[in-house]
Structure formats: C-alpha cells, structure tokens
C-alpha cells in the first residue's frame, strides 16, 4: 500500500521537476541557441567567397604563383584580387612585365645548381631567365602579360600599391590598363572579407 503511494509521489515529483525544467530551461536554451546562431551568421555573412593575394616580389618565378592562383580562383567562381606592392609592382608595369627575370644568386632550387660565386658573374641572371623560359615554353605556360590579360578577362581585381608607386616614381600610365591604385587600407578592406589571404 505505502509502496504504491511512494510510487505515486515519485511520479508527481518527476512530473513537477520536468515541468519546472521545461519552464526554466526551455526558453534559456532557445535564447542561447538563437544568440549563437545570430553571431555565427553575422560572421558568415561578412565573409565572401573571395581570395586576396599580396604580390610583393618582381622576379619571374615569383610572378606566377599569384597570377595562377587568382585566375584559377576566378575560374572556380571565386572573387579574386591581387595587391601588387614593392617589387611586385613590376608584374603590372607595362614597361617591365614582359621582361621579368630569374635571379641566379642565392637560388639553390635551380635545376642545375649554380654556386653563388658563379651566379654572381655578369650574364648569369640572363642565363637563369632563359632557362626558366625554356621550361615554361615546354609546358606551354602562358607569359606574364598573357596571364594579366586572363586575370582581367576573368574579372580579377588588380590593385597597384600607391605608396610603392610614389617611392619608385611610377605613374598610373606606367601600369597596365584596367588596374586600380590603392594603399594598405584598400587591400585590408578587400582582404578582411576574404576566406583566403596570401602573401607571396
């Protein structure tokens, strides 16, 4: 008899506890989940399917990675932009971009390793450059000017660094057509919404 009463009481207590939990915890959980979701969505919304690259080097071998990545990203449906700064500005300098060179000094990755003492000799940069151009020709890799054209065609954003231009005395007319000019803030604003950001 008392056993049945105990069971009855247990059931009542359990129901009461359940009701209290539902009453107190339910709204709290809902509220916290909603808040977390809102924060998550706000973060997600601020970010675009975009890649932002800084091209800081002006040698032939270092001109390719930013150009290849930006054009490929654009071909994959991403928004792509390159900020050309310091020596990287040569990549969009119409007087220079067809004549970028490969350094023969301090470059142990050359297929025919060149000791630095030989790499320092006059004409070695020309030889290293001719060598790289011959491999690129073998795999039919496009030239830098062709890549720039492709990048423009694919709507990549190309930004020349204003400060570098001032320092090096480069004018907007010296740059290839269709590039924008901007400073660090221009790049940072662009990159702050990018999923991928690279310094090359």
């Amino acid at each position: 008899m008392s056993n049945a009463m105990d069971k009855d009481l247990d059931a009542q207590v359990e129901a009461r506890v359940q009701a209290l939990l539902d009453q107190k915890l339910g709204p709290l959980v809902d509220e916290r989940v909603a808040k977390a979701l809102a924060t998550h969505q706000a973060k997600g919304n601020g970010q675009l399917d975009r890649i932002a690259i800084i091209a800081s080097k002006g040698s032939l071998d270092m001109a390719y990675p930013p150009l290849i990545l930006a054009t490929t990203a654009a071909a994959m449906g991403m928004e792509a932009g390159i900020f050309f700064t310091f020596y990287g500005l040569d990549i969009i300098n119409r007087k220079k971009y067809a004549h970028l060179k490969v350094p023969s000094l301090a470059n142990p990755a050359m297929p025919v390793p060149v000791p630095n003492i030989i790499g320092a000799l006059p004409g070695m940069t020309m030889i290293a450059t001719a060598m790289m151009k011959s491999w690129m020709g073998r795999v039919k890799l496009n030239s830098v000017p062709e890549f720039i054209e492709m990048a423009k065609d694919l709507d990549c954003t190309l930004i020349g660094c204003q400060m570098t231009m001032d320092v090096m005395g480069i004018k907007k007319e010296d740059l290839v057509e269709g590039v924008q000019v901007g400073g660090a803030a221009t790049y940072l604003e662009f990159a702050s919404k990018a999923k991928i950001s690279l310094f090359i």
């Binding site: 290849i68 054009t71 490929t72 071909a75 039919k140 890799l141 492709m150 694919l154």
Partner: peptide
C-alpha cells in the same frame, strides 16, 4: 592537350 595548370581549368570555365 599539351596545356599545363591552370590553363585547362580556365579554358573549361570559359
């Protein structure tokens, strides 16, 4: 044929 990365991707996109 004969083209290397990233040309096949870019031409495919086009």
């Amino acid at each position: 044929r004969g083209l290397s990365c990233p040309l096949p991707i870019i031409k495919t996109k086009k």
